[in-house]
């Protein structure tokens, strides 16, 4: 089994390298799973938290905001997982004082930037979840539109006869997306947290 360096792992995450991602999963997932199960979570909770922690790290990498000075990839990953789980416990109104800390973590990583990023990730994750429930043509249409592709071009790509139809269809898709987001109880919780 290859032992990747932290730099290789980070590059791998940036490239979505399947081998690196598999390696991360095999090396660290069971520890996160153990920690979450010890702290009133389930297998599903563990896999959600693990996945979102990698996404948070990816977002940090994209922003060039991830330098390991005192920490390592492992330490950072565990700290983010722990932080995400603490937030979940808070949402579920479960006391966090009695936390069974089996993961090594660094409190000093929990700065405003991380809090903000985690909140944004939760919000965007929710929007993306509902976006993925739209029909494939709705997804494609909205993506093209947000990529600022001209309507004429969009109509051509999507096989619509007129630009006007493309525009109307886009509104309908977006309306449906917004409706689904607003109906999600998680969205209401996010709104409450924001206020």
């Amino acid at each position: 089994m290859i032992n990747y360096t932290d730099a290789q792992i980070l590059k791998g995450i940036l490239r979505h390298d399947n081998l690196i991602l598999q390696d991360i999963y095999k090396q660290y997932y069971y520890k996160v799973n153990y920690f979450i199960k010890k702290n009133q979570g389930s297998e599903d909770d563990a896999s959600d938290i693990f996945q979102e922690a990698i996404i948070v790290i990816y977002r940090k990498l994209k922003e060039n905001d991830l330098i390991f000075e005192k920490s390592s990839f492992q330490g950072y990953l565990f700290s983010v997982c722990r932080f995400l789980w603490l937030k979940q416990l808070e949402k579920r109104r479960i006391e966090r004082e009695r936390l069974n800390d089996s993961l090594p973590f660094q409190e000093d990583l929990y700065d405003d930037n991380l809090v903000e990023l985690v909140d944004q990730n939760a919000k965007y994750g929710l929007y993306q979840k509902h976006f993925k429930t739209l029909s494939t043509d709705c997804q494609k249409l909205l993506q093209l539109f947000f990529e600022k592709v001209p309507l004429r071009e969009i109509a051509k790509i999507m096989g619509y006869k007129t630009e006007k139809y493309a525009k109307t269809r886009k509104y309908k898709c977006k309306e449906l997306l917004i409706k689904r987001i607003k109906q999600d109880t998680e969205f209401k919780k996010i709104l409450e947290d924001d206020t």
């Binding site: 979505h16 999963y25 996945q51 990698i54 996404i55 977002r59 965007y124 993306q128 993925k132 993506q143």
Partner: peptide
Amino acid sequence: AVGEEDVMDLRGEL
């Protein structure tokens, strides 16, 4: 959020 195709892809791969 919808523009973050890379994040959605990464989530799918994971």
